[in-house]
């Protein structure tokens, strides 16, 4: 009787674990036609857990036809479950001064297990030359 209960508990726990782990499969061209201008980045990691869940794969930049700096960050969820995070992009001019913009907000995103996600941002003015992207776990009580 005791063994049967234990086995049932194991089966139920296994089901619960597997049902929460829905990860993403992907397919793409083996040799991409477009070439990314990948930039060397500097990372300051204070939340190791978040860095594992939302791992920054790389950052590349380009310039729009209007002369605005455009950046793209590729992140990968290393875990097998859905993760929620926030990000915010800050822009700096040639003198390293922060550019205030009404659209500089913490943006919430969701990423499925093993999913890669591209985050894009466009500088608010053509004078923006540098950027800083911040990542944070979801802190809202849901």
């Amino acid at each position: 009787m005791k063994k049967a209960t234990l086995a049932l508990a194991c089966v139920l726990m296994g089901t619960a674990v597997l049902s929460s782990c829905a990860s993403v499969n992907t397919v793409e061209r083996e040799t991409p036609v477009g070439t990314r201008h990948v930039i060397t980045d500097k990372r300051v990691i204070t939340d190791e857990t978040l860095a594992t869940k939302v791992n920054i794969i790389g950052v590349n930049d380009a310039t729009t036809p209007g002369g605005f700096l455009q950046i793209q960050i590729e992140v990968l969820n290393e875990s097998h479950s859905l993760q929620e995070f926030n990000y915010r992009v800050e822009w700096f001019d040639m003198n390293g001064m922060a550019i205030n913009t009404p659209t500089s907000v913490w943006i919430p995103r969701q990423i499925e297990g093993k999913e890669s996600l591209t985050i894009t941002a466009v500088a608010p003015t053509p004078t923006a030359k540098d950027f800083r992207v911040k990542f944070m776990e979801n802190v809202r009580d849901n």
Binding site: T64, P65, G66, F68, Q70, T103, T120, A121, V122, A123, P124
Partner: peptide
Amino acid sequence: IKSLLASG
């Protein structure tokens, strides 16, 4: 804004 500025 991101879309409008990028569109040119």
